[in-house]
Amino acid sequence: MSDRLEIRKTFKLVINGAFPRSESGRSYEVQSAQGGFWANAAQASRKDLRDAVVAARAAQGKWWSATAYNRGQILYRWAEMAEERRDELAEHVRASEGVSRDAAQATVSAAIDRIVWYAGWTDKITQVLGGANPVAGPFFNFSLPTPSGVVVVFAPQDDSLLGFVECVLAPLAVGNTVVAVTSTTRPTPAMVLAEMTETSDFPAGVVNVLSGFVDELAPHAATHGDVDGLDLSGVDEGADELARLAAGTIKRVYRPRPLEGDPLRRLRSFVETSTVWHTIGQ
């Protein structure tokens, strides 16, 4: 460090392709793993969540009606952006998670590779999860995976970058739009990645990222009528109650399990199966 007084950055929210501060005018101090000031983060409010859901809903039709190839291109572009700024990401992972530089670099590599992995899924998932159904009658019948719609993600608290990537990319790859809430205490790796959505050709509103407190935001997400899916990966205590609240509007709820039987579970969690019958005749 030089003698120069550093410029401290406040990480803002990502809502509808813009970078607002919280409408509540609040922010909170983020500490590094070693203790000590690391950054300021916007403290998203219920209304920020609401705005993000509105943006995500508005963008969902556009995101889903883009070609799968195009969605894959955009997700891959995100990985390119991340690769370019990988040192910055690693620095945030190191500071947030208190790991070595090498370990942080490895995490970043894994996260970027995971983005690329998901980018490749956009135009394959339909064939893997869908197909023709041989019904006993004069009908052409096929099933297609379609997105649930708007998914609110509470990203893992500890695994600040790779966990965020898993939670956000899976629903995105299958055509959902996402409102993601980062790790509360370790928001900055995810926020840096979120900033890159600006230069990755995402339509506004496809990826919305909030930093803030689970207790404050999650009940509103769980009860919000226009939220179709809820990923509670980042919620420990209170997850049962949130799942209960989510039942009010029959939401799809993802909760991690100790042993996952199928590596595609995340991809399957926020897709619906839409089955079309059409008559066959001369």
């Binding site: 019904v135 009908f139 019948n141 099933s143 199966t273 839409s274 089955t275 079309v276 059409h278």
Partner: peptide, 17 residues
């Protein structure tokens, strides 16, 4: 919708989700 019937309605089959 989970099921869409084109030029038909209320058809069911064990092979069709």
């Amino acid at each position: 919708a989970g099921v869409i019937w084109a030029n038909t309605y209320n058809k069911f089959d064990p092979a069709s989700p």
